[in-house]
Structures are given as structure tokens and as C-alpha cells.
């Protein structure tokens, strides 16, 4: 059941949409970007989350009763939470508790994983991302993702970052160069690679490759970046750099990060959600979500406290 907190007309959503192709004439100004033309107006959910309203920023998610099944196996049930804009939200919990699955719901990457069914509502700035009219391809330009292992494309550093913008139709060389530089700066990689943009991405170290992947995600100017254990395959120094990058990014984008590292969650996140699958017979669910400081010092649920203090998981 969807209970929109605040119902507004189409104009209300449109006003909240950022035109991603700034400079390209704004042809689709006033239209929700990921709606296909023919589906215009079909959008069932027009609730704008109270959080997004209050923050005034873009990239706020509101999840209501989200459940996920792999085939007949229900792995995640009844997740309801708000992910505020321009904050870092950490998803923590033991392996197999559905953190990554939940993360992939947000940009509908679960569509790529075969027989996955997602129910409930997930609204991005008030718009249901699972609605029929929503093109996941368009959605993913607004909700970028960084994967667990660095996965640069087998091409040059420049081409890696320019990949997304090219998909969006940016062709002019100087425009691309500007986006590439801006994105690499955003990912704190520019100073290291500015003189070797034509080098193959595989020549970079693991940590640099991961920051390249962050730059690549930034290049489409997303409102949200999802990170699935982005530092778990990296050494401590690279991890530190990624964390610094995240701290800088959160002034402009919403970040949702899955992590196994509780110190990391405590260090970098504003909000923490603790998830748990208590037995294989039952799906995982959200135990509690709240302010990170609160979660790590005085959690409401004894299970959260047990996990955080290392008693299981």
C-alpha cells in the first residue's frame, strides 16, 4: 500500500526534476526525465517525500514495504525507510542480510540479475521508480552505482569517464573534456591522472581504478550514487582515499553505501540502517534505521547493539 505523504500535480514533480543535460537546450525541461513519452501521466505515485521537501535537495528515496524474492525464495521483506538527500546512508548487517539486494532495488539493477521480483514502493523524489512507465536505463543515469570490485572498461581513462556522457548524447570534445575533468576532480583522481588521460585504465592501481569508477558514475551527473562495498577489495590507504572522496561528494549527491566495515559506517555515514536475516527460513528485514551516532552509541534494538559490538555476524 502506498500512502503518499503529499500529493501534488504533475507540475510539482517537474519542478523537482533537475535537467541533467544542462546546456543541451533543455528539450525535456518540465518532463520527468525517466518517463517514456507514451507513458506520460500514467505515473501512479505522485507523493513527494516529506524528507525531500524539508531538505530541499534532490536524490531522496522513500521506501515503503519493499520486499524482494529470488525466484520463490523471499530474501527481503517489509523494508520501509527514508534516505535523505545529500547525506551518506550506510547499510550494515552480516553477509546475506540483503544489503546489496536492497541497494540494487534503488537503481533497478536487480532487473539485470534474472528472476528477481521486487514489491512495495520505492520513490525517488516522489516518483515511483518501479512504475511501468519508468525506463530503468533513464533511472540509472540519475542513480549511479559503484561496484565492489573496480570494473573499469578496457579503454583509456578518458574514455571510461566519457562513457556515460556519450550515452547521454554529449558529443562535443570540449564539453566532454570539461565533464571528464570535473568528474575526475570530484573523485579526487584528477591530480594523479591529468597528464595521462590517454593511458589504459588497467594501468591504474586498484584504488585508482575504484576512484575512476566513481568518476565514471559522477560523469552522468547523478543525484544518487550507490556503493556496494566500494573499499572492500582495497588496501587501507586506498580505502582512506575513497572515504575522503565520499565525504566531499555528499555535499552534491546522495550516497547510499553498503559496508561490512562498521568503523567505516561510523566514520562516513550520517544515517545507518541495520539489516538482519535471523534464519534462512525467514526473509531478512530492517531492524532499525537512524542517526549514525545514535545507532553506534545507543541503539534502540538489542540486536543492533549485539552486532555493532561484535557479538555476532
Amino acid at each position: 500500500m502506498v500512502i503518499p505523504l503529499h500529493v501534488s500535480g504533475n507540475g510539482g514533480i517537474a519542478a523537482g526534476m533537475r535537467n541533467l543535460n544542462a546546456g543541451s537546450g533543455g528539450a525535456d525541461e518540465g518532463e520527468p526525465r525517466f518517463l517514456r513519452e507514451e507513458d506520460e501521466g500514467d505515473d501512479p505515485v505522485v507523493g513527494v517525500s516529506a524528507v525531500a521537501e524539508a531538505e530541499g535537495g534532490l536524490g531522496a528515496f522513500a521506501l515503503a514495504d519493499v520486499s524482494v524474492s529470488y525466484g520463490r525464495d523471499r530474501v527481503l521483506e517489509g523494508v520501509s525507510m527514508d534516505i535523505p538527500a545529500q547525506k551518506v546512508t550506510a547499510l550494515i548487517g552480516p553477509s546475506g542480510c540483503g544489503k546489496s539486494t536492497l541497494l540494487r532495488c534503488l537503481n533497478r539493477m536487480n532487473d539485470e540479475y534474472g528472476d528477481v521480483r521486487v514489491t512495495g514502493t520505492i520513490a525517488l523524489d516522489g516518483q515511483d521508480v518501479m512504475a511501468k512507465g519508468v525506463d530503468p536505463v533513464e533511472l540509472r543515469m540519475r542513480v549511479g552505482q559503484v561496484f565492489q570490485r573496480p570494473n573499469p572498461f578496457p579503454m583509456t581513462i578518458f574514455e571510461n569517464v566519457a562513457y556515460g556522457p556519450r550515452t547521454q548524447g554529449i558529443r562535443a570534445r570540449d564539453e566532454l573534456s570539461a565533464v571528464v575533468e570535473e568528474s575526475l576532480r570530484g573523485a579526487a583522481l584528477w591530480d594523479e591522472v591529468k597528464n595521462s588521460l590517454k593511458k589504459h585504465a588497467f594501468e591504474l592501481s586498484g584504488g585508482q581504478q575504484q576512484r575512476l569508477c566513481i568518476a565514471r558514475a559522477l560523469a552522468t551527473k547523478p543525484e544518487v550514487i550507490l556503493m556496494d562495498e566500494p573499499a572492500s577489495a582495497l588496501d587501507p590507504i586506498s580505502t582512506q582515499q575513497i572515504e575522503d572522496t565520499i565525504a566531499e561528494l555528499k555535499s552534491t549527491v546522495t550516497i547510499v553505501i553498503v559496508t561490512h566495515n562498521m568503523q567505516q559506517a561510523a566514520r562516513i555515514s550520517d544515517l545507518t540502517a541495520f539489516m538482519l536475516r535471523e534464519s534462512l527460513d525467514r526473509p531478512a528485514h530492517l531492524i532499525e534505521v537512524g542517526d549514525t551516532k545514535h545507532m553506534f552509541t545507543n541503539p534502540d534494538d538489542p540486536r543492533t547493539e549485539s552486532y555493532i559490538t561484535g557479538r555476532f555476524g
Binding site: 536505463v137 540509472r140 543515469m141 578496457p154 556515460g164 550515452t167
Partner: peptide, 23 residues
């Protein structure tokens, strides 16, 4: 991972095939 990386950047399957997988 490469295909998913491309999909996560808002590419269709066909675009991913032409731009990443085939090269």
C-alpha cells in the same frame, strides 16, 4: 562486472554490447 558497470551508467543492453562487450 563490465556489463553491469555499463548498465549502471544507463546503457541499454545493445549499447553495452556494442561499446563494451564486443571491443
Amino acid at each position: 562486472d563490465l556489463r553491469r558497470g555499463s548498465a549502471a551508467l544507463g546503457n541499454t543492453r545493445w549499447q553495452t554490447t556494442v561499446k563494451v562487450t564486443l571491443p
